[in-house]
Simulated scan of single mutants.
Amino acid sequence: MMKIVFLLLLCCRSASSGTHSLRFFYTGSYGVMTFPEFVGVVMVDEVEVIYCDSSIGGAEPKQDWMRKLIKDDPEHMDWYSNECHTSHNTFKTTTEILMQSFNQTGGVHIYQRMFGCEWDDETAEVNGYDQYGYDGEDFIEFDLKTETWIAPTPQAVTTKHKWDNDRAGLFYIKNYLTQVCPEWLKKYVNYGRSSLLRTALPSVSLLQKTPSSPVSCHATGFYPDRAMMFWRKDGEELDEDVDQGEILPNHDGTFQMSVDLKSPAPGDWERYECVFQLSGVKEDIIKRLDKAGIRTNRGQAGITGNIIIRAASALFLFASCITGVFIWRRRKGEEQMFYS
């Protein structure tokens, strides 16, 4: 079974509080009859804003503010559509080359690339990254500090030497990751300010499957994803006897998360409370551990519904990750930004 570690690591990469991110994902597939040969997605602050694939032959905006940006700058969408087509051809050729390098003659294969930047609007710090994966494993990655490529697999060594010797190409990529990408990100954040910089508080519930099961504190419907949730006992945050869950996306663009507490002794319940903190919101949401307020699946659909929500969100996350995104290249007469 093909590993999906690389895929999930790419998507689950999270910006810290105070930062914004512009991430490009694109995925080429071989031997997958029910999936397009090439799929591209661009995400701003983990929100999908552009989508394309080889079956529709172009790019589509996914947010109202991106549609406005395109209306103000029509060439913007032309660049995306052209790159979707060009990257499809490049990925198809590259996958064939990689199959030869790995002595593969058939089967199912996935070639991916993720690149982008993060910008801290408080400190102005900028970070960039550019990496490739093949069949769920890291293939090659750009080290921005040393301006060299890192090859974790022997099959990537030849590519590393070739790309390391292309000094003009290295300079161009560094300039894009540290200069061009942040400028585009700032433009996107400005256009999408009312959506991207909004805050939405969650509904918080206590869930328990059986009387001896852990108590799950579940928050859903919050935005942005820069949030923390934890259990406290007698006012002190707990590090033990808790299981911290991941932040997962909901279908409406909001997020959910949960943190489980091992079932405490009956006489200690009043000493516990669940605390939810959202970036940009001063007041915490506190849910005290109260047996009467716990939703269970004993004659109810509460906990079952929660499990279904988590599973659906995980599938949504995977689907978002596997859609990879196209790349910006300069047009005729300009130096190509990315390697083929």
Rank of each mutant, 00 (worst) to 15 (best):
Arg232Ile: 10
Val204Met: 13
Gln179Cys: 12
Leu317Trp: 06
Thr94His: 07
Tyr188Ser: 12
Asp78Val: 01
Ser81Thr: 12
Ser55Met: 05
Lys187Asn: 11
Thr178Arg: 14
Ser258Asn: 07
Arg193Thr: 08
Ala168Asn: 05
Tyr26Gln: 11
His251Glu: 11
His88Ser: 13
Cys274Pro: 08
Val204Asn: 05
Phe115Lys: 04
Leu7Ser: 08
His161Pro: 00
Pro154Lys: 02
Asp130His: 03
Asp225Pro: 10
Lys186Arg: 08
Asp284Leu: 12
Leu206Ser: 04
Lys174Arg: 06
Leu196Phe: 02
His251Gln: 14
Leu289Ala: 04
Asp260Gly: 10
Gly302Ile: 00
Lys187Asp: 10
His218Asn: 02
Leu69Asn: 03
Thr19Pro: 00
Phe338Thr: 09
Ala314Lys: 00
Lys62Phe: 01
His109Leu: 09
Trp149Gly: 06
Pro214His: 14
Leu98Trp: 01
Glu137Trp: 15
Pro154Asn: 04
Met114Ala: 14
Lys68Arg: 11
Gly245Ala: 07
Ile294Cys: 06
Thr304Cys: 08
Asp72Ile: 14
Arg310His: 12
Ser279Val: 03
Val215Leu: 08
Tyr339Ser: 10
Ser14Pro: 05
Tyr191His: 02
Trp184Tyr: 14
Asn175Pro: 10
Phe91His: 15
Glu60Gly: 14
Lys209Pro: 13
Thr323Gly: 01
Met114His: 08
Leu315Tyr: 04
Ala151Asp: 02
Gly40Trp: 02
Arg330Cys: 13
Gln100Thr: 10
Asp73Lys: 09
Ile70Cys: 04
Ile97Asp: 08
Tyr30Asp: 01
Ser195Glu: 11
Met114Trp: 06
Ala124Thr: 10
Asp143Pro: 14
Tyr134Trp: 13
Trp65His: 00
Val325Pro: 03
Leu197Ser: 07
Thr159Asn: 01
Ala156Met: 01
Cys11Met: 06
Glu75Ser: 00
Thr34Ala: 11
Ser17Asp: 04
Asp252Cys: 14
Glu273Ala: 00
Gln208Trp: 13
Ser279Trp: 15
Asp284His: 13
Val41Pro: 08
Leu144Ser: 03
Met114Tyr: 05
Thr210Gln: 07
Ala151Asn: 04
Asp290Phe: 07
Leu238Ile: 02
Glu122Trp: 12
Ile308Leu: 11
Ser213His: 13
Lys160Arg: 15
Tyr26Pro: 07
Gly106Ser: 12
Gly235Pro: 03
Gly324Ile: 06
Ala292Ile: 09
Thr123Trp: 04
Lys92Glu: 06
Ile150Ser: 11
Ile285Ala: 05
Ala15Cys: 10
Leu315Gly: 02
Leu261Asp: 02
Thr93Trp: 06
Asp45Gln: 00
Val242Gln: 04
Ser54Cys: 02
Met257Gln: 08
Thr153Asp: 12
Ser195Gly: 13
Thr159Ala: 01
Phe38Asp: 03
Gln100Ala: 15
Gln100Gly: 10
Gln300Gly: 06
Arg67Cys: 10
Glu240Pro: 15
Asn190Lys: 10
Glu183Trp: 14
Thr27Lys: 10
Asp260Gln: 09
Pro202Trp: 06
Met33Lys: 01
Arg226Val: 12
Asp164Val: 07
Gly235Ala: 01
Arg310Met: 05
Lys174Met: 03
Lys92Ile: 12
Ala151Met: 01
Leu22Ser: 04
Ser216Tyr: 05
Ala319Arg: 15
Phe171Glu: 08
Ile140Ala: 09
Asp241Glu: 09
Leu201Phe: 00
Gly58Thr: 05
Lys71Val: 06
Pro264Thr: 00
His218Ser: 12
Gln63Glu: 03
Val325His: 14
Asp72Glu: 09
